[in-house]
Simulated scan of single mutants.
Amino acid sequence: MAAKIDLATSIARYWAMFKLNAKDLLAYRSDLVLSFLMRILYPLVMVFVWTVIYATTRTNRIGTYTLDSMILYFFLASVVSLILYTDLPYSIQHDIKHGAIASKLALPMGYVRYTVTTVIIENFTWAAMAELPLLVIILVVFKVHLSAIAAIEFIAMMGIGMGVSYSMEFIIGALSAYANDIHGFVIFEGLLASLLGGSMIPLSLFSGAAAGIIGLLPFQYMFYLPITALTNPSAVAPEMFLGGLAWFAVLYTIGHFTWKQAYKSITSAGG
Rank of each mutant, 00 (worst) to 15 (best):
Y114T: 06
G190L: 07
F188T: 10
A12D: 12
A262D: 10
S165E: 10
F206S: 04
L134D: 03
I155D: 07
M70I: 02
K264E: 13
T118G: 09
I62N: 05
G161M: 06
E153I: 01
R13D: 10
A262H: 08
N60R: 09
V49E: 09
T228L: 15
L135S: 07
V79Q: 11
F206I: 01
M46G: 03
F241Y: 15
L245N: 06
S204Y: 01
T56D: 11
P233G: 03
L107R: 07
Q93C: 02
Y85T: 11
L105T: 01
G110C: 01
L82H: 10
H94D: 15
L84W: 06
Y73F: 15
G161D: 03
L203H: 01
T267M: 13
S167H: 07
A12G: 13
A209Q: 09
L135Q: 04
I266F: 08
P226H: 01
I96N: 02
T125S: 13
L242D: 01
W15C: 06
A229E: 03
K97C: 03
F48I: 13
W247L: 02
A22G: 05
W15V: 12
T115W: 04
A269P: 05
L7D: 04
V79N: 10
A246I: 10
E153G: 01
A237I: 09
F18N: 05
A229P: 02
L242A: 14
K260A: 13
I171F: 08
I152F: 12
F18R: 01
L216H: 05
M222H: 04
R61I: 14
M17H: 07
K4G: 06
H145T: 14
L132H: 05
T51N: 12
V112D: 07
A22R: 10
P43R: 08
P226E: 00
Q220A: 02
R61Q: 15
A229C: 02
P238D: 09
D87S: 11
E189V: 04
N180M: 11
M157D: 00
A246W: 00
M168P: 01
N180W: 08
F248S: 05
T267R: 12
S103N: 11
R39W: 09
K104Q: 12
F142T: 02
P238M: 06
G243T: 02
L205D: 00
K143H: 12
A177H: 07
S91R: 14
Y65C: 00
T66P: 05
Y42G: 08
A8Y: 11
K23H: 13
P218Y: 00
G208I: 01
G197M: 03
I137K: 00
T228P: 00
Y90E: 10
P133V: 08
Y42F: 14
R113E: 11
D6I: 12
L192M: 13
Y90W: 13
A130T: 14
T258H: 03
P43W: 03
W259H: 08
L25R: 11
L34I: 15
I182Q: 00
V140N: 08
W15K: 12
I71C: 03
I213R: 00
T56A: 15
F154R: 06
F185R: 05
I83H: 09
L139N: 05
Y90P: 00
V116W: 10
A237M: 13
L32W: 12
F188Q: 05
T253P: 09
N123M: 11
L44R: 00
